[in-house]
Design a protein around this nucleic acid. Sequence first.
DNA 1: CTGAAAGCGCTAACAG
DNA 2: CTGTTAGCGCTTTCAG
Lengths: 335, 335
Amino acid sequence: MTIRTRATRLDVARLAGVSSAVVSYVVNNGPKPVAATTRHRVLEAIRALDYYPDEAARRLRGVGGSTIGYLVPDIRNPFFADMTAAFNRALRLRGYHLLLADLGDDDAQERSYLELFRTKRVDGVIAWQTASVNDLVDFLTSSAIPFVLVAARHPGASSIMIDEEAAANLAVGHLKALGHRRIAYVGPRDVTHHPQSRRPFVERALRQAGLPVNGEWFVDMAALDDAPTAARRLATAPGRPTAAIVHNDAFAIRIVSNLIELGSAVPGDLSIVGYDDLEASRYTRVPLTSIGYSKSDIGRLAIDLLLRRGEGATTREELTLPVALVVRASSARAG
Amino acid sequence: MTIRTRATRLDVARLAGVSSAVVSYVVNNGPKPVAATTRHRVLEAIRALDYYPDEAARRLRGVGGSTIGYLVPDIRNPFFADMTAAFNRALRLRGYHLLLADLGDDDAQERSYLELFRTKRVDGVIAWQTASVNDLVDFLTSSAIPFVLVAARHPGASSIMIDEEAAANLAVGHLKALGHRRIAYVGPRDVTHHPQSRRPFVERALRQAGLPVNGEWFVDMAALDDAPTAARRLATAPGRPTAAIVHNDAFAIRIVSNLIELGSAVPGDLSIVGYDDLEASRYTRVPLTSIGYSKSDIGRLAIDLLLRRGEGATTREELTLPVALVVRASSARAG
DNA sequence: CTGAAAGCGCTAACAG
DNA sequence: CTGTTAGCGCTTTCAG
């Protein structure tokens, strides 16, 4: 446990009695072969001096690094936390690491994070849908940084997202099978400002199922703090919907909590279906029925997509992931 | 949105009709002054070429970087997610960024992450209590990387943690005031393997309060998955404790959920007090009474501690943060 | 106030 | 198989 001053590749070369190039060949397994005995001596010297290469110098020489910029709306949101872990795991397996860019729900930071990615010369970027996808796509494209968009589509980007159509059909189908006819939606209403809105999919699914589509049953909720208002709207909606599909579980947890405070029973008065099948959704007041999908698959596939782009693949790819319904206590027979 | 090849500081110099040194002076505001008109020309050129400095080259020259390694046991745990956000915010304000090292509950990864920090030449490390603190402290010390330990103490490290003694007294005092006399503890029992165990503090607090200390009321729980067993033990403990102090809210949420499934009422049969005052603890089946403290203060203070060390301060510092009790539905009058 | 030039640690020709 | 060497882009003396 002594503090020594860092050894450089030259120190190793001297100790091993070889040139600095050979050390390089050994460390990188190439590009030239090294005699077994020499290699051994070098390895010894490395151990003896506790030598490790300097990434900065390497990068300067043009060798690709190993870090991926990760732009996430809010890591405190359990959904993003889960997904971050999945991405991290997938990346690690391939020798990469995450530089964390947590917006903390403050979209204004986005630009400065992108600039950070650029100066740091990250090898790629994974980005969630944020306020200004267009700026993001432009910036990364013009900076020639490979990237993939998660849970969003954009004509200029590779992306990955769940099968929204199937998800909406699943949710609607489940509720219909339970005898519900008046089904509400709680989530971002305005599709232009919230491209991630699930409203269009839910609407279409309702139509296809032959169920009524009522504008007053589309309750706007764009942030967690909207929950009290949204819950009130939902509970007092004209025509009394008996079920609601909520944009995600994080929202749903808050909605349920607020409904109960307002005296509405879940699922007694209102059945609820969320999205994302959060770990946390099992331990809430009323465990949530939810649209689930494999988070680790998203992680794995997104990374592959990204690294493929990093290797110079120019084709844009759009991946769609299958979903499944996880039934728990928040949805029950109508009536 | 065109893909141009990166401009170097020399391109800027040429376009501005100055030497590369001057560009450097402008970009870094020093170390030499630059005439206003020259500076203006340089700035123009930078804009025109969309120039940005290369961090790798800079680091190679010995200029400090701006990234901090962050070793966290499991980012999916809402507590760590909250704290990560707090650290990130505090760091950003000071121009630093987090390189995420999420163990994902797999301690075996620790060493390789530490090595990563070293090759990447991070400017500091923030580390939570993990399996092998000693190795961690040795490694970072001998690599001359400044670091601070969070929620742990070690003779060779600067550290920050909450006032465990006050916390235990608060929890015990609250329950005692509600008329509870038989108080259990759920958490890691074995202090050697789990240095973060709160058991000793709870034990001492019970003694000081003149309440009984019963070995059978100390229920072992070291991971989330232990919850079912721990809940059963707690519900069937001899002498029927009427309240329990649980190691943290994440555990407490699971314990409450399991107790209810077992037919025990919370707080009817058992009052529960947790630690950490998670956001999530407000929306669980029974909102939790919990020991709270300022997560942003921890973030801020830890960073200051770290940067002070980075500046060559050699004094080890141990910070202790105040706590407060947040009373919610999970604790009620005994009886 | 501005410029020339050395060199950070490393890789990869190129030449033995 | 091994060695020599030219830079990667930047900061910073040292001279003007």
